[in-house]
Write a protein that binds this DNA or RNA. Structure first.
Lengths: 244, 244
DNA sequence: CATTGGAACTAATCTAGATCAATAACGTTA
DNA sequence: TAACGTTATTGATCTAGATTAGTTCCAATG
């Protein structure tokens, strides 16, 4: 499978715009480096020395940090087209763990590839870094959101954000999307207990705003939910990379 | 003032190790680009298009995000030697604001410098990115800590972390350090109210662990505080950059 | 087809920290 | 030196969400 032919990935990379032939050639070398991961088995452990980053082709992955008290904080979810662990390569070791939520396939981007890209095609390297910076910014936004938002806003904001991101790769729209997450995942991501998540989901459902059931998120009142969550999709904007 | 002669900055950059003459030459061009900022006046506004990053030479700066409800979340503090807004340059605009807490001086690292560094001295560029990644990791660590830690752990952890970071640039030790932050700063950084911060600080003082008074943090029982906060300084480690 | 185990769901109780409302201390400026 | 603004401090009350302890539902598995 050529990277340019892989549907979710190409949409992500299309933001890089106007690549030269040389750059395309380098990108082409990512061919055949795809790896499969089974649901539930960590792809990368916190603290592990990492020699590669990944681009998720199919599946869902979550990034999390284990806390000293044994609980875990999920810092983000990756859907097809998202980068995984780019920063771990720079830092020499991963500062969090990655767990596939369902069976997933990812393209491997080896450290050597990144190093070569730096010297051979700096613009391509910059594009990668831009993508990494953007993903980082989203995680920060998410974590900051935890601080001052209450539970119902956190949950509705989160569901809307996922819809927006999945929409970018054609996996969802304003009606809803398929979502393999459990209420436990939501709890760990949003800093709540699963008990409370359950209650709030019930309230949202009874208010005819959104339902989260049987692997499917359905928006009954998208506009109303946007208002409740004070959701502003601006920060997800696909702005151009530095060297475009 | 040459960058190599500037005490806090050189310590930070020394982690880059073994730079070639060409790389030193590029670094040397940062000369005389220092700028001063007055306490309380934002250096950079959220959303502003940024054409430069900074390295803080003297002073204290805080990075924050304004929330929709008007409150602000401080995502980190910068002390001498820290980088400021490197990511904003990659993303074309700043995703948070920077406010000097006291009068501060920063070396400007213009966008052009970074671009040139990418093509001319990829290793140097990598070193900068490594530094940026490391600072990012610290912010994430901090924000994640907010999720599950209670107020006294947050506060003691925060005070210990600052001590460790200031220690790296010779501005503090296990006895204590000078700190221009107000209790409101702590509250905004830790997601608490200033009222509660005040109460917890009183408790910590009465427990003879640490005092936060008159611009000075004094550790009365450093070891005890480390235990209370479950503080593990490992994540602050100055690991080597990618291309070292 | 019975069993098991994960996920969803519910109810009762408890508490950390917010909120509201003052007061005190202190440095700055008129 | 009077007035003011900022920061620190304390007390009383309130509440969102945690905690604990279940039950229900359903799909997989032997």
């Amino acid at each position: 499978m050529n990277i340019v032919g892989s549907s979710p990935v190409i949409r992500k990379l299309s933001a890089f715009a106007s690549l030269s032939d040389a750059e395309r050639a380098v990108l082409g070398r990512l061919d055949a480096k795809s790896r499969s991961f089974s649901a539930g088995r960590d792809m990368v452990h916190q603290g592990q020395t990492e020699r590669a980053a990944y681009i998720l082709a199919t599946g869902w992955v979550c990034s999390y940090k284990l806390q000293s008290d044994g609980s875990r904080q999920i810092v983000g979810f990756q859907v097809p087209g998202d980068f995984l662990g780019l920063r771990s390569v720079l830092l020499h070791r991963s500062d969090y763990s990655f767990e596939p939520i369902v069976d997933s396939v990812a393209l491997e981007v080896p450290k050597e590839f990144l190093l070569e890209a730096f010297s051979a095609t700096p613009r391509l390297a910059t594009a990668f870094l831009w993508a990494a910076a953007r993903d980082e910014a989203m995680m920060l936004e998410h974590l900051v959101g935890l601080g001052r938002r209450d539970a119902s806003k956190r949950i509705s904001h989160f569901l809307l954000e996922l819809a927006a991101r999945l929409g970018l790769v054609g996996l969802g729209n304003a009606d809803g999307y398929d979502c393999p997450l459990t209420q436990y995942h939501l709890a760990d991501a949003l800093g709540l207990t699963s008990v409370h998540v359950n209650r709030v989901l019930r309230d949202l459902r009874q208010a005819d705003l959104v339902s989260f059931r049987a692997g499917r998120v359905t928006f009954m009142d998208h506009a109303g939910l946007v208002e409740l969550a004070e959701f502003d999709p601006a920060y997800l904007d696909q702005t151009r990379p530095l060297a475009a």
